[in-house]
Nucleic acid binder design. Sequence first.
DNA 1: CTAGGAAGTCTTTTT
DNA 2: GACTTCCTAG
Length: 835
Amino acid sequence: MSTTPLPGFEHLLAAKPTTEEGRTPRRGPTAEELLEGLNDPQREAVVHAGVPLLVVAGAGSGKTRVLTRRIAWLIQERKAHPGSILAITFTNKAAAEMKERVAELVGGRAKIMWVSTFHSACVRILRKEAEHLGYDRVKSNFSIYDAQDQKRLITMVCNDLDLDPRKFQPGPVLHQISGYKNELRDPAEVRADAKNSFEEAYASAYELYQRRLREANALDFDDLIMETVRLFQTKPGIRETYRRRFRHLLVDEYQDTNHAQYALIHQLCGQDLEEVSTGSTNLEGADAVPPAELMVVGDADQSIYAFRGADIRNIMDFEQDFPDARTVMLEQNYRSTQTILTAANAVIERNEGRKPKRLWSDAGDGAKIVGYVGDTEHDEARFVSDEIDRLTDEDAGLRAGDVAVFYRTNAQSRVFEEIFMRTGMPYKVVGGVRFYERREVRDALAYLRALVNPDDQVSMRRILNTPKRGIGDRAVACVGELATRDSMTFWEALRRADEAPGLATRSQRNIEQFVAVMGELMQMVEAGERPDVILESVLDKSGYLKSLEESDDPQDESRIENLAELVAVAREFAEDPIAGPSADPADVDAGLVEPGLADFLERVALVADSDQIPDAPPDGEAEPDAPAETGMVTLMTLHTAKGLEFPVVFLTGMEDGVFPHSRALGDRTELEEERRLAYVGITRARQRLYVSRSVVRSAWGAPAHNPASRFLGELPIDLVDWRRTEAEQTQWARPTFASDSRSSSYSGGQRLGSPTAAGRRNFSSAAARADAAAKSKPSRAIPNLAPGDRVTHDSFGLGTVVTVEGVADKSVASIDFGSEGVKRLLLRYAPVEKL
DNA sequence: CTAGGAAGTCTTTTT
DNA sequence: GACTTCCTAG
């Protein structure tokens, strides 16, 4: 069973526009052909010209179609130069797909368009303009730091600042910094606005973090956007160049843009934020170009990324931001049955302050929604598995590839993997432990990054002693000290290790060897060797491969395989020059398409989970040559499911505390975001929707008893066919396995006494087992606390409860321990006792 | 300096 | 329960 997520390249490689490419551009489709099969509002959006346009595109309303047809229309009918079009999508996969579909309409010219994510577009701009950024060290070979790199760096920063690691954990600090960047605030502003020592500490962390990034010639994800905005602000000339270039701007998934992205759009459309906020539409200078034509597409009901800075107001206030804007509503749905849409509408309508919108379909009612309540998550998974079996054989016509299983958090995929593995159901998990996050892959990539950008301290430190070559913490500290003392980069200090104070000769020799190897490899990079060739040399010369081969850890075998896979990916990349959205149009024009190591790294840095999903034939526009190998059940989180569709969808773990997530339970706005997530999930289904939950679910190794998700109660009751409800879940026999029920009742009886006793106690045998497992551990009773209660804690002493949130296993209390401060404690673990 | 074990942390969601 | 980080012995 394929459990290894593919690295996310194949779709780009497959997206080679083979159809039209090479032929002389035909006269292209006529205007009628471009509008064929579109409904009225869709047509309006396609042909619209002039003022900014907002397309409110409900789920499944054919917005991709509108976008591609519009682009084709711009080129074909309005004679727009393809190079003057900038289309922003949410994922690289969406970009590649869109490019391909436009190419089908207008031919190879489409390649010159910029169709990419915000991040890729900004990287391209920043690489080109790197020298104008105003940082000494930042050059066009800058590294892009992902979450893990950021974490390492911020940990070093917090250490250097002597911040209490308990109060300033890397995750929250980074989240904070990310927030600043999304709001376009620089460290000085943050410091000026700081109201207390806590916020000042954040400002210091932000400041030093930024300095370290720049010293390392690196940018993080948020920098990519922020620095582009800043570049345009400080260098109006450069901004003007891009304004002139991009005459048409199309933004997909507009509801998920953050403030920085919003600012960028405004800059490119000729209106700066200051101009907007002062209400002035004056452009400075007589040579200013008129604003580009803007079309944004989105659906406020599908905004699910507020947690990473997306600002739903961007779409809600579009008409205020652009007073002369037009709005087009796409409400007809071409994807789902009316039953599914009615359910989706019923759920989303509970959100307050949303603009009314009702999806409808003429596809007929279709099947009822099927509900199931399992005893445990294993029982729930078994139901899903049985049901898929049934659907894929007797119900003929459905393949495993037509089915998707969604869940709220990645951890929930486990039970499904277990049962699919047992029953031999082919499946594929999207996301989770990503290929590019595996240790060995990251090690290899760190080598490559260090070669391209030796200033990249995080990568350099990572590989310095990987594999072990006798350069320990002490040696690293000595080199670091030298670097600080003589203000040089870490890499320079390594090269001059002989000057490092207090460095053991043995370590020094080891460092020299390392530097020599790196020097050799760097020469290969300079000589322009192909990425795959360099990668192979890295694995060889660094001794990394050898150390894995000699290891007796069985895991290392699969590590070797993963590295082989990475080499294969690099080879494919090297051999296919046009693949993917990051080839610079100018280079394509010049026939200059020899992607180097740096391009490879950039691509790798910007792949998304959803980029790995195999292509499915999209809405109606048939793809008869669709790959036959997609016969696998797809497992993924609700977040990665956005933008996709499947004939059959299972929404699992529908429990309060799981979905909606426990952290959202107490918060109105967060709850509404969860509800939008439910809406997204429901509307992924074309024909059949299943909702399921389980009464007992083991979270963190101990069983938890979760109530039904409130979203289940929001489904119209007559639309759901409950196969099994909570009332039935007390039974020990499994209805679907007649032959199994006898033995079940036996063992149930033996374990729990009389079956009725088991029933009354609301536990299935499996749950009882889980329960017993929990009891074998020293699990303590959870104290029932309320604000005001006095407690003692084993190490913090006396305290007073301030707040209590969450329920049962997940309850968290804030407790004031006086001089020890206020602590947030997970009551299940915390050694607190009520007085 | 490294290896191995113990102890502590944690789970949203991701470009 | 799984992953990381910390600690200790060689």
